[in-house]
Design a protein around this nucleic acid. Sequence first.
DNA 1: CGGAATGATTGAATCGTTTCACGTGGGGGT
DNA 2: ACCCCCACGTGAAACGATTCAATCATTCCG
Lengths: 335, 335
Amino acid sequence: MTTSSMKDVARTAGVSVGTVSNVLNRPEAVAEETKRRVLAAIAKLGYVRNDSARQLRAGRSRSVAIVVLDVANPFFTDVVRGAEPLVDSAGGVVTVCDSGEDVRREQRQLEILEEQRVLGLLITPVDDSSAERLERLTAHDIPVVLVDRGAGLHPHCSVAVDDVHGGRLAARHLVDRGHHSIAFIGGPMSIPQVRDRLAGCREVSEEAGVGLETFTSVSLNVAGGREAIEQMLRLPQVPTAVFCANDLVALGALQGLTMHGVKVPEECAIVGYDDIDFAAAAAVPLSSIRQPRAQLGRTAAQLLFDEIAEGKGHTHRNVVFQPELVARASTAVEM
Amino acid sequence: MTTSSMKDVARTAGVSVGTVSNVLNRPEAVAEETKRRVLAAIAKLGYVRNDSARQLRAGRSRSVAIVVLDVANPFFTDVVRGAEPLVDSAGGVVTVCDSGEDVRREQRQLEILEEQRVLGLLITPVDDSSAERLERLTAHDIPVVLVDRGAGLHPHCSVAVDDVHGGRLAARHLVDRGHHSIAFIGGPMSIPQVRDRLAGCREVSEEAGVGLETFTSVSLNVAGGREAIEQMLRLPQVPTAVFCANDLVALGALQGLTMHGVKVPEECAIVGYDDIDFAAAAAVPLSSIRQPRAQLGRTAAQLLFDEIAEGKGHTHRNVVFQPELVARASTAVEM
DNA sequence: CGGAATGATTGAATCGTTTCACGTGGGGGT
DNA sequence: ACCCCCACGTGAAACGATTCAATCATTCCG
């Protein structure tokens, strides 16, 4: 028998289990001498609290789950970083889940998180198909905060960055630089952020009478960007600028273009999205649309705890941040 | 009352809780008709299993924890990625914990994980101070696999890459390129990987009669690299090459050097470590020491499940991979 | 037609905490 | 001397699922 329980501790200390529990949870309510004896017993037996039993009694766990599209994307790790301190100081634990942009994985994870009765959930859903399940979580008293997702659409709190506006900023920047035909790279199109960024871009390009080709990448990562460039370069008339749905795609695009001897920014400009740290450190430092990453995480966690604290009387809040353009070498040439 | 239990399901289906449990866990043992009724009740009530209760009974949870030094470091996310499929297919769940190179945080997380009775633990410990606690976990039947850590030192399974050899490879490469004085950047020195990589580097530099200055960075990230370069550039005689303890530090070093107008690789060469994807995409593509990142994760998970399966009769295995040099532009000049 | 074998379901014990209504004994106030 | 209150402790009842021996029907076979 390697694991000892409260009962064992109680026995060795010559007290009741209730007292052991008190030593652990309300030390001020137990006499010095007794406390000493109990602590000694705990040390001697190497007793460790059983969280399952605790949770069973409490009805909830202490973990706050964050479900992201891609843990390997620095954007998301920065969001997680932003949320962590708050959760920590509230005595919680952060659990990171990677849905990998895969609806089925996401489903499975949500199921498990629900079974675990997590304290709350921050999530960037893959697409709209999880809406139902998320509402169900809320109905089961598990607050959900949507991260980086269009506001107001769902009965949850949310933090988001105005992606349509971000798309506009990118396109406006390229138009100002004199480009007449733009390529948009991103996908899959089921991801709302991708659609929104594209929408903003389209808005500006149409208004300015500039051509817009879209290339759907399989995934929002480096490989996706590289592959999309292959397609693009097969066009009879290759666009002189690409706007990528995120920086990983942009880095992939940069690699693809360089590999084919296309000079960036002279022959083709690039604008990315997120402004992850690596964007500035790229072969050609990337112009990008900056999002307040850590702030997103921090605010999301804050909203979550607010909702928990307010309980039933809570009204959802939807916080929207504005993105900003960071111009670097990858768009440094006038056409 | 928003959450229903087995008892509720049993009542609505007109059966006993034992039967409900059977429907869920051994469906073949219950009659079709009954099963239908129970499933209907489950659907109607929106019943969700309570994992805490399950675990309490089972004595273990289903989660495999991975404790890493820095989630924002692509090296670690790749390791996690490698481990995930295996854990998944074994019906487990991955929990990622970020110790942030902070011993106290690590301690706290280990405590929590022990309380949670996790299935097992993959960990890159911050330093040796957790050895005791880790042994205690093993004693409590929680298998521990050390990731990216010197083999044989501890009573656990481990997967590692030969860091001393990696350091040698880097130094050898720089010596071959004709450098006469090398700077090592990395830290804190309490991290064993840092010490080993430095040791390998020192070995070769001494053997070759080449100068070696070491700069201790506060942390193994971009900022750490940038700051170390500030120090280095104050030297009367600035080294012509730097070997960085990982790629993030190397990227920081690259930024620092560029900011001060030092040309890479003409005036100063750089070798990184890990060969993360971003290394190849950097402003000056980085030479680096490649580690089999995903393989590390995969093997670690495999060892863990082996240990669980073998039980008491298990003997620890220590798998060591060999790193390899990937030469790119950042060392492309002969001195 | 009796008895055994098979199949389906039940009920109660159990996991390890937390919580709360109750003792119990001693000390202070009047 | 009496009463009351306080400070400490106790014991037992939850929490929700799993498991297993026991029960109850059937069916099958000789």
